[in-house]
Structures are given as C-alpha cells and as structure tokens.
C-alpha cells in the first residue's frame, strides 16, 4: 500500500492567523510556537464517517415543536467542494446561530434582547451525492460582544463540517451581503485576503428561495484538496 497523498498547501492570506490582535480573546490563547508540519499518515488522511444513522439530520431550524420561530424565514443552500473542484458527498454540516433578535438559546448569553422560545438555533444536514445541501432557518440578528467599544457581531451563521480527511475539518461562519457591520468586525477581518473574506459572505439567490415563503441565500464551502503529486517528506 502506498503512502497517503498530501494536502495542497494553504493559500497565503486565506486563513486567519491564530494571533489576531483585533480579537482580544486570541491574546492568551494563541500558541507562540509554530506548529510542526508532518507528512500525512493514515491518521491524517482518513476521517470519521459520520452518517445520518448515528447523527440524525434536522434541516429546519425555523420550527420548534410545531411552533414557528419569529423573524425573517430564510433558506440557505449550496455545495461542498474540495479545492480540486470535486463535490464532497455525505458531508455532515452542523449549524448553529442566534435567533432573529441576536440572542443565543444558551444560559451564558446575557444579551438583553427577547429570547425566541421557538428558536433553538441548532441544525444538522448532510450533503447529497453532488455535494449539495439545504436548510431552512431564520435570519439571525446582530449582537453585542464587548471586544471593543460598542462592539457588535454582524449577522452570521456558524458551521462545522467534516470532510473525508482529517485536514478537511472546517469550523467557520457565514455572513450576509451588504451588512454594514462587516468592515468593523475583527473576526471577519482576521482573514487577510479580501477574496477569502468575500467568500464568507453568502449571496442572495432567487433560485434557492421559495416564492411567497422565504428568501434564499447561496453559500458554497470549499474544503482542503489533496495534492495530485506525491508529497515530499518535509523533513
């Protein structure tokens, strides 16, 4: 059996540095030493197989126990691809977000905004054979976060994705087009490359939405690709 192929190198500026001074919580939590780069073994090239049998899907966050959540109903859909443009089928996507007023269904969230009892804010979907996914939710509200003077997070949805290889694991946030808070947000702006930042913003898509029911937004995820050429030993 031949050795596992490596992953494509990270494109410069496309990932946020762990030391991101604008985001105060990184000060004491970012490692000061560089990580050690290793050649991938089976440990790094494989990944857990997460299936709907063990991790049931729930693709509609807008209804809780038969009750409609408040706010602007939205549909989000798109595809999960790798850097080589290949769809990633059967990819588990975890989703979490604040309700329409900008409050998380969590005791630690003390933001003084009305909590929607019909919005729990957790979802889980799997991509199909073509790497496509879709879920229904409510547009999340902005919320304050004390990082700097009068700091507010732009509207965003959190995601967690598991690919077919360990290095494809992705936790990220999706933003909405035209949000005036984006230029002020240190988390979004921790990504140096403007193109990479823009790819965190979904696009209004009338084909994703449903007439007289919900606006639709398109958002594609790209997971790290594998290198077609054999990897040199980094040693």
């Amino acid at each position: 059996m031949s050795d596992p192929v490596g992953y494509l190198p990270v494109a410069p500026g496309s990932q946020p540095p762990l030391d991101s001074p604008g985001y105060g919580s990184t000060h004491k939590r970012h490692p000061k030493q560089a990580p050690i780069r290793i050649a991938p073994t089976l440990t790094e090239s494989l990944a857990p197989k997460l299936t709907e049998r063990d991790y049931p899907a729930f693709a509609d966050l807008s209804v809780h126990e038969g009750h409609q959540a408040q706010g602007e109903r939205i549909i989000v859909g798109g595809r999960v691809l790798d850097e080589n443009g290949r769809p990633v089928p059967h990819c588990m996507i975890e989703i979490w977000q604040a309700c329409s007023t900008g409050r998380y269904h969590h005791p630690l969230d003390t933001h003084d905004a009305p909590m929607d009892p019909n919005f729990k804010g957790e979802g889980r979907v799997f991509t199909d054979e073509n790497g496509a996914y879709r879920f229904v939710s409510i547009k999340p509200g902005a919320y304050p976060w004390r990082n700097h003077r009068n700091a507010w997070r732009p509207n965003h949805i959190h995601y967690s994705l598991f690919g077919t290889g360990f290095a494809q694991r992705l936790v990220t946030q999706m933003y909405f087009p035209g949000d005036p808070l984006l230029p002020l947000d240190p988390v979004f702006n921790a990504v140096a490359d403007a193109g990479a930042r823009d790819r965190l913003i979904c696009g209004l898509d009338m084909d994703v939405g449903r007439e007289e029911w919900a606006l639709g937004y398109r958002f594609d995820f790209v997971l790290r690709g594998r290198d077609a050429t054999p990897m040199e030993n980094p040693q």
Partner: peptide, 20 residues
C-alpha cells in the same frame, strides 16, 4: 492544479454549546 481555495476558518466562539 488547484482551482478553488479552501474556505477560511472562523472561531467556534463561545456558543458552540448549541451543538453540544
């Protein structure tokens, strides 16, 4: 050759407990 660039990571934040 690579055609696309991997999506940027963003912090998991304090409220990931919603998916705990």
């Amino acid at each position: 050759m690579s055609k696309l660039v991997a999506t940027a990571a963003q912090t998991i934040g304090p409220y990931w407990a919603l998916i705990e």
